[in-house]
Design a protein around this nucleic acid. Structure first.
Lengths: 126, 126
DNA sequence: CTGTATCCTACGTGATACTG
DNA sequence: CAGTATCACGTAGGATACAG
C-alpha cells in the first residue's frame, strides 16, 4: 500500500498508523457504536447504517485482531455473540470522539466552502 | 460524542464528511505537510512520499473545495502555485494530530494484539 | 443467529502521454 | 512548473447462497 522508506521517521509514520488503524470504511462507526456498550452481531448490523453482513464480519475481525474489541460467543441455540470494546478500544474512542466532535462543530464551514467553490466553478464555466 | 445510535432516517452526516477525508489515501498526508507551512505543488509532490502527480492534484482540489486549503497561482514563467492551510485547515489539524499522537503512543499495543491474534489462529489451524 | 464462500462490479489509483 | 487526459488494473465492498 505504501512505499514509505525515504522519510523522516516521526511524522509520516504516525500518519501511516492512523490510516491503517481506522482508514477503512466501517471501523470507526463500529467502534463508536460499541463505545455505548456491548452489542450483539445483529444489533450492530441494525445500528450501523448501511453495512452489509460481510463487511460487518470483516470489520469486526479486523478490530478484534488489532485488540480493539473482544468477541464472546455463547454456545446457545440460536447462537449468540457479543462484541465489546477492550480498554484499548475505549482509549481509541477519545481521539476519535474529538474528531467526531470537530466534524460536528465545523460541518457548516465545510458545506459552505463547498457551495462557494462549486458556485465559482459553475460561473467560470459559462 | 452523543447518541449517534439514533441516526434517524438520515445518517450522521457530519462525521461522514471528515471520515471520508481520513478515508482516502492522501488527504491527511497533505494536510499535515501543509501544517508546516505553505508549499508549492512540486514541493508537496516531493514531500508526500509516493504520491502521483494525478493524485496530488485530485487531493488538493478536494481539500480546496472543502475549504481546508487555499490555492494561489502566480502568472509567472514558469508558473508557480502555492497551497496553504486555511484557518479551517489549521483547526482540523488539532484533532488529526491528537489522533496521530494516540496512534504513536499505542502502536505497540496494536502490534502486540495483532501478533497474539495471529498466533492463536495459527495454532487453531493445526 | 452468526457467520463463510463466491461471484461480480465500481471505484480509487498508478502509469503514461500531452498541454499551456 | 503545474497541471489535464486516457487507459489499465486491483481490490474494496455489495449481492447472494449456503452452513453450523
Amino acid at each position: 500500500m505504501k512505499p514509505t522508506h525515504l522519510h523522516p521517521p516521526g511524522r509520516c509514520r504516525m500518519i501511516d498508523e492512523v490510516l491503517s488503524l481506522i482508514g477503512d470504511k466501517w471501523s470507526i462507526y463500529v467502534v463508536v457504536m460499541l463505545g455505548q456498550g456491548k452489542r450483539r452481531f445483529s444489533e450492530l448490523k441494525r445500528e450501523v447504517d448501511g453495512i452489509s453482513q460481510k463487511m460487518l464480519t470483516v470489520t469486526l475481525r479486523g478490530l478484534e485482531r488489532d485488540g480493539y474489541v473482544t468477541r464472546t460467543a455463547y454456545a446457545t441455540i440460536p447462537p449468540r455473540v457479543e462484541y465489546e470494546l477492550t480498554e484499548l478500544g475505549q482509549d481509541l474512542l477519545v481521539p476519535v470522539r474529538a474528531l467526531g466532535d470537530w466534524a460536528n462543530r465545523n460541518e457548516s464551514r465545510v458545506v459552505g466552502a463547498r457551495i462557494r467553490y462549486d458556485a465559482r466553478r459553475a460561473q467560470a464555466a459559462e
